[in-house]
């Protein structure tokens, strides 16, 4: 009988893992090398470029509006995070610690909007914004993305608060602390990890914003990075190394943030799928 000890190197496991790593890493490495390759070597079959160059990046940044759009995207993501974190802390706490009429219905609405992406609501949003003068207004896009990020953020905070025993807050209220005071003094200092998870997930998903911005921000200078890259693809579709450099450029921020907080990100993804 075969025994599987976990310490002995297992060639089957190793080769399977090798294939997995290759499938996921190879395209990333390839695009990175393509971005750093001289333009004349775009179609070269040799995996390594003869020299590494930043001329593609330079070209991608000088002809497009990626730098300005990066600023827009950063402002958008920071603003959305700044609104979502306090709002989801309040709502997540209330959902976890209070019983009130309509709570379950409201929870269902949150779950519903967690599942339904903005696309089907885009026509109505477009119309409201046209009436309210919020087309091509960064505030309008921020509000849509806040609404898109809130359900998951609230779920994560709620699950976190539910996992903390209520006893300490109860003790504090007996000692004369108000209920919200107890929450602020006892619960809030514990929320660091879950707030970090919310921040990284909200930032990274908001950075991917495309379709709402494409619809509401028709002025090319008001858009986000995804729009800039897609516009570049439309205009310079033959400049493969330049497009690769642009793709790498707009991916640096979310990837760096993810690598920095990957533990929190993965925890958040896991908890987000285990709502309910």
């Amino acid at each position: 009988m075969r025994t599987r000890t976990r310490r002995r190197p297992d060639w089957k496991l190793s080769s399977a893992l090798g294939i997995v790593t290759l499938v996921f890493l190879a395209p990333l490495l390839w695009v990175l090398l393509l971005a750093l390759r001289p333009q004349s070597e775009a179609l070269s079959s040799s995996p390594l470029p003869s020299v590494l160059t930043l001329e593609n990046l330079h070209r991608a940044l000088s002809r497009g509006s990626l730098v300005d759009l990066t600023q827009n995207s950063t402002i958008l993501c920071v603003a959305v995070c700044l609104v979502v974190v306090p709002l989801s802390l309040l709502a997540g706490y209330a959902f976890a610690r209070f019983r009130f009429k309509g709570r379950n219905l409201l929870l269902f609405v949150f779950m519903f909007s967690l599942a339904v992406p903005g696309l089907v609501n885009l026509i109505a949003i477009y119309q409201f914004y046209a009436v309210a003068g919020l087309i091509n207004n960064p505030l309008g896009l921020i509000m849509v993305d806040v609404a898109a990020a809130l359900p998951l953020a609230t779920w994560l905070i709620r699950s976190f608060v539910l996992s903390i025993p209520v006893d300490m807050e109860e003790a504090a209220t007996i000692d004369g602390c108000s209920r919200l005071g107890a929450a602020v003094r006892i619960l809030l200092p514990l929320t660091g990890p879950v707030v970090a998870a919310v921040l990284v997930i909200v930032f990274v998903t908001t950075w991917q914003e495309f379709i709402v911005a494409q619809t509401l921000m028709s002025d090319p200078s008001m858009g986000v990075v995804s729009q800039g890259l897609l516009a570049m693809q439309g205009e310079y579709s033959t400049d493969m190394t330049g497009l690769a450099a642009g793709a790498v450029f707009i991916s640096v921020v979310p990837v760096a943030l993810f690598l920095l907080l990957q533990r929190r990100f993965v925890d958040g993804m896991t908890a987000g799928a285990q709502t309910g």
């Binding site: 991917q208 497009l243 793709a247 707009i250 979310p254 990837v255 990957q262």
Partner: peptide, 15 residues
Amino acid sequence: VVVPWVLSEIATGVV
């Protein structure tokens, strides 16, 4: 394995 989920969809699509 999670990195592709983090990349912008447009960047992935363009590449």
